[in-house]
Amino acid sequence: MSEYTNRRPVSLLDVAKAAGVSRATASLVLRESPLVADGTRQRVVETMKNLGYIYNRGAANLRRNSTGTIGLVLSNIGSPFYSTLMAGVDETNEAGSIVTLVANSVDSPDRQIRQIRRLREHNVDGIILCPAIGSDETLAAELARLDLPCVQALRHAELLGGDYVGADYRSGIEKAVRHLVGSGRRRIVFVGATTLHSAARERNEGFRHAIRMHGLNDGLVVAGAPDNAYDVAALDRLLKARNPPDAAVCYNDVIALDVMNRLRSHGRQPGQDFAVIGMDNLPQAAGAFPALTTIATHPREVGQQAAALLQKRIAQLGPSKGEHIIVPPSLIVRRSCGEASVAA
């Protein structure tokens, strides 16, 4: 049996003695207190590493009545858009020494509730939630029963109320239509229209409002569905019509990239005789041919803001009633509209 098998765990008092400080000072270093001089802090930290000291965070959390963890429940963790949101949440949580536990609802209300219950079983201090399609009173009742601080992100279920952080989808679509009209486009189709959740409805509202503002025909809409699907046959009919559209605003970049391929199959050239705009500014957008004009909705910033708001709620700071933080979008103009890259 090796000497390490019988060795007792290194205590904070051991660290303090080896570093030549009091136990209270070593404890202040663990808590990242500004009261400790930089030289002393560095000496204590180095001593902890050398002795192999392991901080018992679980015991500390029990004393503070918190676990230093939050749950992040998303509808599709495989999407690069949601991955960017996760990165934003993690950046803010890391700065606060908070661990993020991620769950995937796959847009199933039943699975969403199961995931929230499991996160509660792990004693998370709160959750950031992108509500699944079809979320209803059952979700609201469960959150109330669990007494769990919750910030909605990207989508919001009105029945939940409370805090929300998201992009301004409506104004983003309006910016896109304004740009197309300004460049001479008059027959603009919205591809991927759906009303399945709040983010979709706000896109639809933005398009219809912009079309009316500019006095255009508001009937050019191609329906969408989950998983980036849209009515391809309906788009084909419009492209073959006597007076076909000359531009498309798409629900997201994935649909926009598919629409550009569809245009080529009809002998139309995106960026030349047909303008295409997507939404979300995925990495694939800039690398497309032609490079895709898109509405950047800044999911990383949404994630950062949502995590910061949840931390505030957990700490019970500020007003307790629902706070809405809306991140303004940017229109990034690229060759799919016939112009060189600019941001607006």
Rank of each mutant, 00 (worst) to 15 (best):
D236T: 10
A176N: 09
A233P: 09
A176Y: 02
R170P: 01
D147C: 09
A223M: 12
L148C: 06
A141K: 07
L154F: 10
G172W: 02
N217G: 10
G224F: 02
R145G: 04
L220F: 10
I188W: 05
H209S: 12
G219L: 06
L196R: 11
G162P: 00
G184D: 14
H156C: 12
M213D: 15
R145H: 08
E158I: 05
A234D: 13
A210V: 00
A153E: 08
V189S: 07
G162I: 03
A199L: 07
V165F: 06
D147E: 12
G206W: 02
V221E: 08
R203H: 06
N217I: 01
A223P: 03
A193T: 08
Y230K: 06
H156G: 09
S171N: 15
S171T: 15
I173Q: 00
R185M: 13
L235C: 06
R178L: 14
R186N: 15
V189C: 09
D231E: 08
L159K: 08
A225W: 10
R208D: 07
V181W: 00
T195C: 12
A225P: 01
A200Y: 05
L160K: 02
E202K: 14
G162S: 00
M213P: 09
V177F: 03
L143T: 02
G172M: 01
V222F: 03
Q152I: 01
H179P: 07
L159Y: 09
A153N: 07
S183L: 13
A141V: 01
A153T: 12
D218A: 09
E205T: 15
K175V: 10
G224V: 01
G172V: 02
Y230G: 00
G224L: 05
M213E: 15
D163C: 05
R187L: 10
T194R: 14
A229V: 11
G219Q: 10
G161H: 00
L216C: 10
A199Q: 04
P226F: 10
V221P: 04
S198Q: 11
L235K: 10
G215Q: 09
R178H: 15
N228L: 11
D168L: 10
I188M: 07
R208N: 10
L180P: 06
L160E: 02
R185K: 15
D227W: 08
L220N: 07
T195R: 15
L216G: 08
A234E: 14
V151R: 00
G184Q: 13
H209N: 12
R212C: 08
A167H: 04
A193S: 13
L180N: 05
E158D: 14
L154S: 12
R212S: 11
Q152P: 00
